[in-house]
Amino acid sequence: MTAPLVELAGVSRRFVRRRDLAARIAGLVGAGGAEEVVHAVDRVDLAIEPGEVVGLVGESGCGKSTLGRLAVGLLPPSEGERRWRGEPIDRLPAARAREQQLRMQMIFQDPYASLDPRQRVVDIVGEAVVAHGRIAKRQQVEYVGLMLNRVGLDPTLMRRYPHQFSGGQRARIGIARALAVQPEFLVCDESVAALDVSIQAQVLNLFIDLRSALALTYLFISHDLSVVRHLSDRVVVMYLGRVVESGTADALFAGPAHPYTGALIAEAGRVEARKRAYRPVVGEIPSPLAPPPGCHFHPRCPRAMPRCREAAPPLVDIAPGRRVACWLHEAPFAPPA
C-alpha cells in the first residue's frame, strides 16, 4: 500500500492569548485570570490519497480553516506530525522545505483581500515562480500568459491591477497564482463563497477541469454542503476542533451517522424545498475558549445521553472508510474495560 499524499497525524493547534499588561498586574495582586487557550484543532488525523478530493465542512469556529493552514504548511502544528508521501516534513532542511512548500498551495476565500492591490497581475502570478528559479525572468510574461489561459482569463490583461477585475476574475487570478508553481496539492478555503451563483458555477467548473487536466489533489474547505457534496470523493466533518465524522461523500450524505452531520444536512438549503417548517438545531456553537466537557456537541444534541457529558467519544470505524465520534455508534458488545 502506497503512502497517502498528505497525512496529518494527531495534529493539534493551540492559540494562546497572552495576558496584556493590565492582566499581568492584576495577576500580581492575585486577581488576574489565566492565559486563554483555544484548541482550534484538537488531535486530528487526516490522510489524503493522491488524486483525491477531500471536502472539509463545519460551521464558523470549528477549526476547518486552521486545519487547512496546517495541511498546507502556513501554520506549524503545536503537536503531531505532518507527512508528505509518508515522509515527515516538519523538520526538513531549509532548501528542501522550500521545495516541499511549492508542492502545496492555498487558494483563499476573499478575492479582494488576497491579492496585492499594488502589483500587476503579471507579477502576482509570476513572482514566486521566478523567485524560486523555476523559470527565468525573461520567460515570465510568456509563462504568465499560459497560466492565465489555463484559468480562462485573457492574457492581454496581465498588465492590469486587481481592482480592474470583477470578483470572479480575481478568484481566477488567485487560482493562477497557486498553479504557477506547479503544485500537486491545493487547499481551497471557501474559495467560491464570496462569488455570485452564476460565477460560482464557473469557478467550480474550473476546479473540476483543472483536477483532471493536472492530476491535482484537493482539500476543499467550505461551509456550503451542496458545493462539498458536488466536488468531493470523501467528506470530513469538524465541530469545535475535532473531527466528528468522515466517509465517502455518497455514504455520508445518504446516511449521516453523527447527529451533527445530520443536522447540517437537514439545514442545508435545497431549491426543491417548498415552503417548509424549519426545525432547527438549538443553540449556537459554544465558545472555543470554554468548550463543553465530554462530546462538544452534547448541549445541542437531540440524542444526548448522560455519558456524552462525561467523556469525549473516540473516533471509531463503523464501516470501511467510515469513521464517527459518537457514543451512539460504540460497538454494542465491546468487552468491559
Binding site: S198, L204, D250
Partner: peptide, 22 residues
C-alpha cells in the same frame, strides 16, 4: 441560476453554468 446550483447537477460533473458576466 437554478441549473447552476450544485445539488441539481450530477455529482462530480461540470455544472451547467451561465456563460459570461453580468
Amino acid at each position: 441560476l437554478l441549473d447552476s446550483v450544485p445539488a441539481r447537477n450530477a455529482r462530480g460533473a461540470r455544472l451547467r453554468q451561465i456563460p459570461g458576466m453580468p
